[in-house]
Design a protein around this nucleic acid. Structure first.
Lengths: 337, 337
DNA sequence: GCGCTTTCTGAAAGCGCTTACATCATTATA
DNA sequence: TATAATGATGTAAGCGCTTTCAGAAAGCGC
């Protein structure tokens, strides 16, 4: 804090109120009673001096940061806005500051050594694919409270918040088959090792099998939960003459790419190819046609993750696994009207 | 940091390497040369102990937080994703952590006393409508580096990053008039006192006047840059039989609400009513019809704001005003095909 | 009046680190 | 050979706060 004008410290407040710095601290923190008249004098001095306690000093002396860290692999996908809203609001309600770090691509040094950890937070929220397993283990061994989102780990107990991926995927693919008679359904996978994606693929496969359809590897491609990757994947399938009558795009961001590729190839949605997504991000109802998708309670995932982390920080017990329900949201892109 | 297992400190590293803690600090920070063999021993001890320096101690001793604070009024609008991406990336490149706080509604206590300031950051990025003028003044008087985004203040020199609102608005309204012959154009205002909104309204009015059209107060409503508010405003105009053939929605999020209201009322876009927005958020091309809008270089605003703030933090001179250009992006909602 | 308990407050230690200043050893120069 | 300069390292102070422990005063019961 390189300010030319030195902000007031606790010593300035103590001097003005005519008490010790211990008393000022007590008034600030309510940790020990202070008689009314003394407390009044202290409050008045705080007001007059516009005193704001220095966070670093508090953290160092109390050994608590009052900060929650959040690690994300990226931030631009429309999926993250509602989740951030949920996390930010819940952290604030619980009296914690939120420090967000985006680790970036898989090769990024941040994944092995992120600038968030036991040194500057009371606990970490870790979104899937944002931190290496070794570092998760190190932090867990140190006893730093951790909560995983959309990811689980084997071998040790870290609370996990996730959603009903498989069930949601099963039901939306079942809808395509049963209600719209689709038989050649593409699945666009998410990023490699992305746990949500693995479960969604399993739901997709189970829906096919439950309806007596074979799982055709030619219909399973990589969309990486990314608009451009999905667009390229579908574009390539079309160019190679692969026969399909529906696309389950893995997430809504990919669905945008699917729309683009189909429209570029003159395929009508949903007449020629039905398209369904996953997540129900804010723009989904406004697409042309309005996207049929699985609603993931994204904001709720964020809120619940903070709740569990705060319990851990306070030394309470947290739920090992919190599974939030998904829901098929039928709009127009599947063929319903 | 309530860990049952105490993480290693600099003293542990010093003991293991057989040097003083000052030498360890020097190796860590490269502030003073340390001979190769000694430095090697220190690095090895750091690795073996998996030592991570405690941020609070560094901040307190060095009087620098290496943290940039960002204040936003909200976070769920699609506008903020690209901006966060720009800010986050630029902060990381400059070696700063980013601490984000969302102040919430106008009545929120956070606006007067946010949990970000001189006590825990080296500088603040302040997005318009996120912090009260009194607090901006207090922080400025303390000498805390500040950069404003999409907002300016009179009376003292705080660097400002903003975009060509008026010019962009003028050109898109001009396009509606000149190319599509629209004569009854609605403007949906942003939140009260929102500077971008004021300039956009001015551009709107000037375009009308430049084309010999009167400014009709009945056509100026409040959309508050919010989907539901915009939907309600347009719905009310329709219910009251107000005649209009175009809507300039103020921002893209509001355009979603305009679309909804028009479609609910059986008005065809753009045949009956043309709709144009502002910002060119990621979903704009995918709407039905694809939204004609003014592209604001959102991510670049974020990047540039960090650049200027970092200059201030380093004691360098920053630009007083940075005005980034906007560009009309013609798609289909205005009537072009 | 005496002894014990409770309440309130101040002094002091210390959280983990940075860095100024002092010291020592080595090298270069006169 | 003596002196000065340079480089590397250690000691100690202190950043701003929290909290433990000690002491004083007041109140209560016998």
């Amino acid at each position: 804090m390189n300010t030319p004008n030195r902000p007031p410290t606790i010593a300035d407040v103590a001097r003005q109120a005519g008490v010790s710095i211990a008393t000022v601290s007590r008034v600030l923190n309510g940790s020990t009673p202070v008689v009314g008249e003394t407390a009044e004098r202290v409050q008045e001095a705080i007001r007059a001096l516009k005193y704001v306690p220095r966070t670093a000093a508090r953290v160092l002396a109390s050994r608590r940061t009052n900060t929650i860290g959040l690690l994300l692999p990226e931030i631009s996908d429309a999926f993250f806005s509602p989740m951030l809203r949920g996390i930010e609001a819940a952290a604030r309600e619980a009296g914690f500051d939120l420090l967000i770090h985006v680790t970036g691509e898989p090769s990024s040094a941040s994944r092995a050594h992120p600038p968030l950890g036991e040194h500057n937070t009371d606990g970490l929220l870790i979104f899937t694919d944002s931190l290496e397993a070794d570092e998760i283990e190190r932090l867990h061994m140190l006893g730093l409270p951790l909560v995983l989102m959309h990811q689980s780990v084997a071998g040790y107990e870290i609370p996990t918040i996730t959603i009903e991926n498989k069930d949601g995927a099963f039901r939306i693919v079942d809808h395509l088959i049963k209600v719209h008679g689709r038989r050649r359904i593409v699945y666009l996978r998410g990023p490699e090792r992305h746990e949500d994606s693995l479960w969604r693929e399993r739901g997709y496969c189970e829906a096919l099998e439950a309806n007596g359809l074979p799982v055709d590897e030619e219909l399973i491609r990589v969309g990486a939960f990314d608009r451009q990757t999905a667009e390229a994947a579908v574009g390539e399938m079309i160019a190679r003459g692969v026969d399909f009558d529906a696309v389950f795009s893995g997430d809504d961001e990919s669905a945008l790419g699917v729309f683009t590729a189909l429209q570029a190839a003159g395929r009508r949605i949903p007449d020629d190819v039905a398209v369904v997504g996953f997540d129900d991000v804010p723009f989904a109802p406004f697409l042309a046609p309005a996207l049929t998708t699985v609603r993931a309670p994204i904001e709720q995932v964020g809120r619940e993750a903070v709740r569990q982390l705060v319990r851990l920080i306070r030394g309470e017990q947290a739920e090992a696994l919190t599974l939030l329900p998904t829901e098929v949201i039928v709009r127009n892109s599947c063929g319903c009207k």
